[in-house]
Simulated assay, not measured.
Amino acid sequence: MRVVAAMSGGVDSAVAAARAKEAGHDVTGVHLALSRNPASYRSGARGCCTIEDSNDARRAADVIGIPFYVWDLSDRFHEDVVEDFMSEYAEGRTPNPCLRCNEKIKFAAVLDRALALGFDAVATGHYATLREDADGLVELHRAVDAGKDQSYVLGVLDQDQLRHSLFPLGDTPKPQVREEAARRGLLVADKPDSHDICFVADGDNAGWLREKLGDRAPNESGPIVDESGEVLGEHQGTYAYTIGQRKGLRLGKPAPDGKPRFVLDIEPVSATVTVGPREHLAVDGLSGIRPRWAGRPPEGVLEGTVQLRAHGDEHRARVTVVPDGAEIELLDPAYGIAPGQAAVIYHGTRVVGSVTISATRRVALA
Protein backbone atom coordinates (compact mmCIF):
# COMPACT_ATOMS: atom_id res chain seq x y z
CA MET A 1 0.00 0.00 0.00
CA ARG A 2 0.96 3.63 -0.41
CA VAL A 3 0.92 5.08 3.08
CA VAL A 4 1.17 8.58 4.52
CA ALA A 5 2.94 8.41 7.89
CA ALA A 6 1.86 11.35 10.03
CA MET A 7 5.08 12.35 11.82
CA SER A 8 4.69 14.71 14.77
CA GLY A 9 8.38 14.82 15.61
CA GLY A 10 8.02 12.43 18.53
CA VAL A 11 9.26 8.90 19.12
CA ASP A 12 5.93 7.13 18.59
CA SER A 13 5.19 8.47 15.12
CA ALA A 14 8.80 7.91 14.04
CA VAL A 15 8.74 4.22 15.02
CA ALA A 16 5.28 3.83 13.46
CA ALA A 17 6.62 5.18 10.16
CA ALA A 18 9.64 2.85 10.34
CA ARG A 19 7.43 -0.16 11.01
CA ALA A 20 5.11 0.75 8.13
CA LYS A 21 8.08 0.83 5.77
CA GLU A 22 9.47 -2.41 7.19
CA ALA A 23 6.08 -4.06 6.57
CA GLY A 24 6.58 -3.43 2.86
CA HIS A 25 4.48 -0.33 2.36
CA ASP A 26 5.47 2.60 0.14
CA VAL A 27 5.70 5.22 2.90
CA THR A 28 5.87 9.00 2.72
CA GLY A 29 6.40 10.99 5.90
CA VAL A 30 4.24 14.06 6.46
CA HIS A 31 4.52 16.61 9.26
CA LEU A 32 1.41 18.68 9.92
CA ALA A 33 2.05 22.40 10.36
CA LEU A 34 -0.86 23.24 12.64
CA SER A 35 0.15 26.66 13.94
CA ARG A 36 -0.05 29.85 11.92
CA ASN A 37 2.88 31.04 14.04
CA PRO A 38 4.71 28.06 15.59
CA ALA A 39 6.46 30.25 18.16
CA SER A 40 3.07 31.36 19.50
CA TYR A 41 1.95 27.88 20.50
CA ARG A 42 4.53 25.76 22.27
CA SER A 43 8.26 25.67 22.66
CA GLY A 44 10.57 22.80 23.60
CA ALA A 45 9.28 19.24 23.77
CA ARG A 46 5.90 19.79 25.43
CA GLY A 47 3.70 19.86 22.36
CA CYS A 48 3.55 19.07 18.67
CA CYS A 49 3.35 22.48 16.99
CA THR A 50 6.93 23.71 17.03
CA ILE A 51 9.71 24.26 14.53
CA GLU A 52 11.83 21.84 16.58
CA ASP A 53 9.22 19.13 16.12
CA SER A 54 9.20 19.65 12.35
CA ASN A 55 12.98 19.34 12.26
CA ASP A 56 12.90 16.22 14.44
CA ALA A 57 10.36 14.64 12.09
CA ARG A 58 12.48 15.46 9.04
CA ARG A 59 15.60 13.94 10.62
CA ALA A 60 13.66 10.79 11.52
CA ALA A 61 12.39 10.45 7.95
CA ASP A 62 15.96 10.74 6.67
CA VAL A 63 17.11 7.95 9.00
CA ILE A 64 14.17 5.74 7.98
CA GLY A 65 14.82 6.51 4.33
CA ILE A 66 11.44 7.86 3.25
CA PRO A 67 10.37 11.04 1.44
CA PHE A 68 9.22 13.84 3.74
CA TYR A 69 6.87 16.78 3.32
CA VAL A 70 5.22 19.41 5.48
CA TRP A 71 1.50 19.96 4.96
CA ASP A 72 0.17 23.31 6.13
CA LEU A 73 -3.18 22.71 7.81
CA SER A 74 -2.97 25.68 10.17
CA ASP A 75 -6.11 27.42 8.91
CA ARG A 76 -8.17 24.24 9.13
CA PHE A 77 -6.74 23.47 12.58
CA HIS A 78 -7.51 26.97 13.85
CA GLU A 79 -11.08 26.86 12.58
CA ASP A 80 -11.99 23.28 13.54
CA VAL A 81 -9.99 22.81 16.75
CA VAL A 82 -8.84 26.12 18.28
CA GLU A 83 -12.02 28.09 17.57
CA ASP A 84 -14.13 25.15 18.72
CA PHE A 85 -12.11 24.99 21.96
CA MET A 86 -12.68 28.69 22.63
CA SER A 87 -16.39 28.68 21.84
CA GLU A 88 -17.06 25.56 23.92
CA TYR A 89 -15.40 27.03 27.01
CA ALA A 90 -17.24 30.32 26.46
CA GLU A 91 -20.51 28.36 26.63
CA GLY A 92 -19.56 26.63 29.89
CA ARG A 93 -18.66 23.29 28.33
CA THR A 94 -15.43 21.27 28.60
CA PRO A 95 -14.19 20.11 25.16
CA ASN A 96 -11.40 17.67 24.33
CA PRO A 97 -9.38 19.23 21.48
CA CYS A 98 -7.41 16.02 20.86
CA LEU A 99 -10.59 14.18 19.84
CA ARG A 100 -11.62 17.09 17.65
CA CYS A 101 -8.16 17.12 16.01
CA ASN A 102 -8.35 13.41 15.28
CA GLU A 103 -11.85 13.74 13.89
CA LYS A 104 -11.39 16.91 11.84
CA ILE A 105 -7.67 17.02 11.00
CA LYS A 106 -5.68 13.78 11.21
CA PHE A 107 -8.38 11.43 9.96
CA ALA A 108 -10.44 13.83 7.86
CA ALA A 109 -8.38 16.61 6.27
CA VAL A 110 -5.19 14.53 6.12
CA LEU A 111 -6.93 11.34 5.01
CA ASP A 112 -8.96 13.19 2.38
CA ARG A 113 -5.81 14.76 0.95
CA ALA A 114 -3.92 11.45 1.09
CA LEU A 115 -6.65 9.58 -0.77
CA ALA A 116 -6.90 12.36 -3.35
CA LEU A 117 -3.15 12.00 -3.95
CA GLY A 118 -3.45 8.26 -4.51
CA PHE A 119 -2.43 7.00 -1.08
CA ASP A 120 -4.26 4.09 0.52
CA ALA A 121 -3.92 4.76 4.24
CA VAL A 122 -2.63 7.03 6.99
CA ALA A 123 -0.33 5.58 9.67
CA THR A 124 0.05 7.25 13.07
CA GLY A 125 1.82 6.55 16.34
CA HIS A 126 -1.39 6.16 18.34
CA TYR A 127 -1.56 3.24 20.76
CA ALA A 128 -4.58 1.23 19.58
CA THR A 129 -5.21 -1.92 17.56
CA LEU A 130 -7.35 -2.79 14.55
CA ARG A 131 -9.03 -6.13 13.86
CA GLU A 132 -11.37 -7.37 11.14
CA ASP A 133 -14.52 -9.17 12.25
CA ALA A 134 -16.30 -12.05 10.53
CA ASP A 135 -18.41 -9.64 8.47
CA GLY A 136 -15.41 -7.70 7.22
CA LEU A 137 -15.89 -4.70 9.50
CA VAL A 138 -12.74 -3.09 10.90
CA GLU A 139 -12.87 -2.96 14.69
CA LEU A 140 -10.95 -0.51 16.86
CA HIS A 141 -9.62 -2.05 20.09
CA ARG A 142 -7.58 -0.95 23.06
CA ALA A 143 -3.79 -1.16 22.92
CA VAL A 144 -1.76 -3.86 24.68
CA ASP A 145 -0.14 -1.18 26.87
CA ALA A 146 -3.08 -0.08 29.02
CA GLY A 147 -1.10 2.84 30.41
CA LYS A 148 -0.59 4.30 26.93
CA ASP A 149 -3.88 3.22 25.34
CA GLN A 150 -5.24 6.00 23.11
CA SER A 151 -8.41 4.36 21.83
CA TYR A 152 -10.40 7.02 23.73
CA VAL A 153 -9.12 9.88 21.55
CA LEU A 154 -9.71 7.72 18.46
CA GLY A 155 -13.33 7.03 19.45
CA VAL A 156 -14.54 9.60 16.92
CA LEU A 157 -13.39 7.55 13.89
CA ASP A 158 -16.01 5.96 11.66
CA GLN A 159 -15.77 2.77 9.64
CA ASP A 160 -14.50 4.44 6.46
CA GLN A 161 -11.72 6.19 8.37
CA LEU A 162 -10.73 3.00 10.18
CA ARG A 163 -10.45 1.14 6.86
CA HIS A 164 -7.79 3.63 5.80
CA SER A 165 -5.87 3.75 9.09
CA LEU A 166 -2.78 1.96 10.41
CA PHE A 167 -1.70 1.91 14.08
CA PRO A 168 1.60 -0.01 14.03
CA LEU A 169 2.32 0.44 17.76
CA GLY A 170 -0.83 -1.00 19.27
CA ASP A 171 0.74 -4.35 20.14
CA THR A 172 3.85 -2.94 21.86
CA PRO A 173 4.48 -1.45 25.33
CA LYS A 174 5.93 2.07 25.26
CA PRO A 175 9.33 1.18 26.81
CA GLN A 176 9.92 -1.27 23.96
CA VAL A 177 9.06 1.42 21.43
CA ARG A 178 11.77 3.67 22.89
CA GLU A 179 14.28 0.80 22.82
CA GLU A 180 13.39 0.11 19.19
CA ALA A 181 13.82 3.80 18.30
CA ALA A 182 17.31 3.73 19.79
CA ARG A 183 18.21 0.55 17.86
CA ARG A 184 17.02 2.21 14.65
CA GLY A 185 19.23 5.24 15.30
CA LEU A 186 16.33 7.65 15.74
CA LEU A 187 17.47 10.67 17.74
CA VAL A 188 13.96 11.10 19.22
CA ALA A 189 14.30 7.85 21.20
CA ASP A 190 14.58 9.74 24.50
CA LYS A 191 12.42 12.74 23.60
CA PRO A 192 9.82 13.39 26.33
CA ASP A 193 6.17 12.73 25.59
CA SER A 194 4.01 15.74 24.84
CA HIS A 195 1.56 16.84 27.53
CA ASP A 196 -1.45 19.11 27.93
CA ILE A 197 -3.02 20.89 24.97
CA CYS A 198 -0.57 21.43 22.14
CA PHE A 199 -1.66 24.98 21.32
CA VAL A 200 -1.71 26.36 24.88
CA ALA A 201 1.77 27.80 25.34
CA ASP A 202 2.30 27.13 29.06
CA GLY A 203 -0.56 24.83 30.05
CA ASP A 204 -2.52 27.73 31.55
CA ASN A 205 -5.87 27.20 29.83
CA ALA A 206 -7.61 30.03 31.69
CA GLY A 207 -4.90 32.58 30.92
CA TRP A 208 -4.76 31.50 27.28
CA LEU A 209 -8.54 31.77 26.91
CA ARG A 210 -8.57 35.21 28.55
CA GLU A 211 -5.91 36.44 26.13
CA LYS A 212 -7.33 34.85 22.97
CA LEU A 213 -11.01 35.57 23.55
CA GLY A 214 -10.33 39.26 24.15
CA ASP A 215 -13.48 41.29 23.64
CA ARG A 216 -15.36 38.07 22.90
CA ALA A 217 -14.78 36.87 26.47
CA PRO A 218 -18.23 36.69 28.04
CA ASN A 219 -18.92 37.46 31.68
CA GLU A 220 -15.49 38.70 32.64
CA SER A 221 -16.54 38.58 36.27
CA GLY A 222 -19.39 37.21 38.35
CA PRO A 223 -20.32 35.51 41.61
CA ILE A 224 -19.19 32.16 42.99
CA VAL A 225 -22.10 30.83 45.06
CA ASP A 226 -22.94 27.76 47.11
CA GLU A 227 -26.00 25.61 46.43
CA SER A 228 -28.17 27.87 48.60
CA GLY A 229 -27.19 30.88 46.51
CA GLU A 230 -24.94 32.49 49.10
CA VAL A 231 -22.14 34.48 47.46
CA LEU A 232 -18.74 33.12 48.50
CA GLY A 233 -16.44 34.96 46.12
CA GLU A 234 -16.03 36.38 42.65
CA HIS A 235 -14.58 34.88 39.49
CA GLN A 236 -12.89 36.59 36.53
CA GLY A 237 -14.61 34.66 33.75
CA THR A 238 -16.72 31.49 33.68
CA TYR A 239 -14.49 30.08 30.93
CA ALA A 240 -11.69 29.73 33.50
CA TYR A 241 -13.58 26.96 35.35
CA THR A 242 -14.54 23.36 34.70
CA ILE A 243 -16.96 21.02 36.44
CA GLY A 244 -15.15 19.21 39.25
CA GLN A 245 -12.44 21.86 39.67
CA ARG A 246 -11.16 22.31 43.22
CA LYS A 247 -8.02 24.42 42.99
CA GLY A 248 -7.92 28.13 42.25
CA LEU A 249 -11.38 29.00 43.57
CA ARG A 250 -10.01 31.52 46.10
CA LEU A 251 -13.13 31.55 48.27
CA GLY A 252 -13.23 33.92 51.19
CA LYS A 253 -15.48 31.78 53.36
CA PRO A 254 -14.69 28.15 54.26
CA ALA A 255 -17.31 25.42 54.13
CA PRO A 256 -19.12 24.77 57.45
CA ASP A 257 -17.67 21.23 57.58
CA GLY A 258 -14.19 22.42 56.61
CA LYS A 259 -14.09 20.17 53.53
CA PRO A 260 -12.96 21.38 50.09
CA ARG A 261 -15.50 22.75 47.64
CA PHE A 262 -15.70 21.79 43.99
CA VAL A 263 -17.28 23.45 40.94
CA LEU A 264 -20.73 21.90 40.50
CA ASP A 265 -22.20 24.10 37.79
CA ILE A 266 -21.21 26.84 35.36
CA GLU A 267 -23.88 29.22 34.04
CA PRO A 268 -22.39 31.59 31.44
CA VAL A 269 -25.58 33.59 30.85
CA SER A 270 -25.86 34.70 34.47
CA ALA A 271 -22.06 34.55 34.95
CA THR A 272 -22.54 32.27 37.97
CA VAL A 273 -20.24 29.51 39.19
CA THR A 274 -21.80 27.17 41.77
CA VAL A 275 -19.65 25.18 44.19
CA GLY A 276 -20.33 22.44 46.73
CA PRO A 277 -19.07 19.17 48.26
CA ARG A 278 -17.52 16.43 46.16
CA GLU A 279 -20.36 13.98 46.77
CA HIS A 280 -22.69 16.35 44.89
CA LEU A 281 -20.60 15.80 41.76
CA ALA A 282 -21.63 12.14 41.46
CA VAL A 283 -23.30 11.38 38.11
CA ASP A 284 -25.19 8.22 37.18
CA GLY A 285 -26.71 9.22 33.85
CA LEU A 286 -25.58 10.94 30.65
CA SER A 287 -27.25 12.22 27.51
CA GLY A 288 -25.07 12.25 24.41
CA ILE A 289 -25.34 13.96 21.03
CA ARG A 290 -23.31 13.96 17.80
CA PRO A 291 -22.76 10.17 17.75
CA ARG A 292 -19.74 8.74 15.94
CA TRP A 293 -20.07 4.97 15.47
CA ALA A 294 -17.00 2.86 14.71
CA GLY A 295 -19.21 0.32 12.97
CA ARG A 296 -22.90 -0.50 13.21
CA PRO A 297 -24.76 1.36 15.98
CA PRO A 298 -25.73 -0.98 18.82
CA GLU A 299 -29.29 -2.28 18.81
CA GLY A 300 -31.41 -2.39 21.95
CA VAL A 301 -29.54 -1.88 25.20
CA LEU A 302 -25.76 -2.40 25.11
CA GLU A 303 -24.24 -3.71 28.34
CA GLY A 304 -20.70 -2.39 28.21
CA THR A 305 -18.46 0.31 29.61
CA VAL A 306 -17.81 3.98 28.95
CA GLN A 307 -14.68 6.05 29.38
CA LEU A 308 -15.16 9.75 30.07
CA ARG A 309 -11.61 11.11 30.07
CA ALA A 310 -8.51 10.38 28.01
CA HIS A 311 -6.84 8.49 30.87
CA GLY A 312 -9.88 7.99 33.05
CA ASP A 313 -11.46 4.90 34.51
CA GLU A 314 -13.96 2.69 32.72
CA HIS A 315 -17.48 2.76 34.12
CA ARG A 316 -19.94 -0.09 33.68
CA ALA A 317 -22.87 1.22 31.72
CA ARG A 318 -26.09 0.51 29.85
CA VAL A 319 -26.22 2.35 26.56
CA THR A 320 -29.41 2.97 24.59
CA VAL A 321 -29.18 4.51 21.12
CA VAL A 322 -31.72 7.28 20.52
CA PRO A 323 -32.24 9.55 17.50
CA ASP A 324 -29.13 11.72 17.12
CA GLY A 325 -27.35 10.27 20.15
CA ALA A 326 -27.46 7.93 23.12
CA GLU A 327 -28.70 7.71 26.69
CA ILE A 328 -26.19 6.20 29.10
CA GLU A 329 -26.92 4.77 32.53
CA LEU A 330 -23.77 4.55 34.64
CA LEU A 331 -23.71 1.55 36.96
CA ASP A 332 -20.52 2.95 38.46
CA PRO A 333 -21.09 6.67 39.22
CA ALA A 334 -18.58 9.16 37.86
CA TYR A 335 -17.43 12.47 39.33
CA GLY A 336 -16.73 15.84 37.76
CA ILE A 337 -18.30 15.09 34.38
CA ALA A 338 -19.20 18.11 32.25
CA PRO A 339 -21.16 18.78 29.06
CA GLY A 340 -18.77 18.94 26.12
CA GLN A 341 -16.71 15.95 27.21
CA ALA A 342 -16.74 12.79 25.12
CA ALA A 343 -18.19 9.49 26.32
CA VAL A 344 -16.47 6.67 24.42
CA ILE A 345 -18.44 3.42 24.50
CA TYR A 346 -16.72 0.03 24.73
CA HIS A 347 -17.80 -3.60 24.50
CA GLY A 348 -14.89 -5.40 26.08
CA THR A 349 -11.80 -3.92 24.44
CA ARG A 350 -13.69 -2.86 21.31
CA VAL A 351 -14.65 0.75 20.70
CA VAL A 352 -18.32 0.88 19.73
CA GLY A 353 -18.40 4.64 19.21
CA SER A 354 -18.63 7.93 21.00
CA VAL A 355 -21.02 10.75 21.82
CA THR A 356 -20.54 14.29 23.07
CA ILE A 357 -22.09 14.74 26.50
CA SER A 358 -24.94 17.24 26.35
CA ALA A 359 -26.39 16.74 29.85
CA THR A 360 -25.67 14.83 33.05
CA ARG A 361 -27.91 13.38 35.75
CA ARG A 362 -26.68 13.71 39.30
CA VAL A 363 -27.00 10.85 41.76
CA ALA A 364 -30.00 11.40 44.04
CA LEU A 365 -28.73 11.99 47.58
CA ALA A 366 -30.70 10.69 50.56
Rank of each mutant, 00 (worst) to 15 (best):
residue 34 L to E: 03
residue 34 L to Q: 06
residue 35 S to F: 05
residue 35 S to W: 05
residue 36 R to V: 03
residue 37 N to H: 15
residue 37 N to A: 14
residue 40 S to A: 15
residue 40 S to T: 09
residue 41 Y to I: 00
residue 42 R to M: 00
residue 44 G to T: 03
residue 46 R to A: 12
residue 47 G to S: 12
residue 49 C to S: 15
residue 49 C to W: 00
residue 50 T to M: 02
residue 51 I to K: 06
residue 51 I to G: 03
residue 52 E to K: 10
residue 53 D to C: 14
residue 53 D to A: 15
residue 55 N to C: 10
residue 56 D to P: 13
residue 58 R to E: 15
residue 58 R to Q: 15
residue 58 R to G: 12
residue 59 R to K: 12
residue 60 A to K: 04
residue 61 A to D: 13
residue 61 A to Q: 11
residue 61 A to S: 10
residue 61 A to C: 11
residue 62 D to G: 05
residue 64 I to P: 06
residue 65 G to I: 04
residue 67 P to N: 05
residue 70 V to S: 05
residue 71 W to C: 10
residue 71 W to A: 14
residue 71 W to K: 09
residue 73 L to H: 09
residue 74 S to Q: 05
residue 74 S to W: 04
residue 74 S to D: 06
residue 75 D to W: 02
residue 75 D to Q: 10
residue 78 H to E: 15
residue 79 E to R: 14
residue 83 E to I: 07
residue 85 F to G: 04
residue 85 F to T: 07
residue 86 M to G: 04
residue 87 S to E: 15
residue 88 E to C: 11
residue 91 E to H: 10
residue 91 E to T: 08
residue 94 T to Q: 13
residue 97 P to L: 09
residue 98 C to R: 00
residue 99 L to W: 11
residue 99 L to T: 08
residue 99 L to D: 04
residue 100 R to S: 11
residue 104 K to S: 07
residue 104 K to A: 12
residue 105 I to D: 02
residue 106 K to E: 02
residue 106 K to V: 03
residue 107 F to K: 14
residue 107 F to A: 12
residue 108 A to E: 03
residue 109 A to I: 08
residue 110 V to D: 01
residue 110 V to N: 01
residue 111 L to A: 05
residue 111 L to C: 01
residue 111 L to H: 07
residue 112 D to K: 15
residue 112 D to F: 08
residue 112 D to H: 10
residue 115 L to N: 03
residue 115 L to Y: 06
residue 118 G to Y: 04
residue 118 G to E: 01
residue 120 D to F: 12
residue 123 A to V: 09
residue 126 H to D: 03
residue 126 H to A: 02
residue 127 Y to A: 00
residue 127 Y to W: 04
residue 127 Y to T: 00
residue 127 Y to E: 00
residue 128 A to M: 01
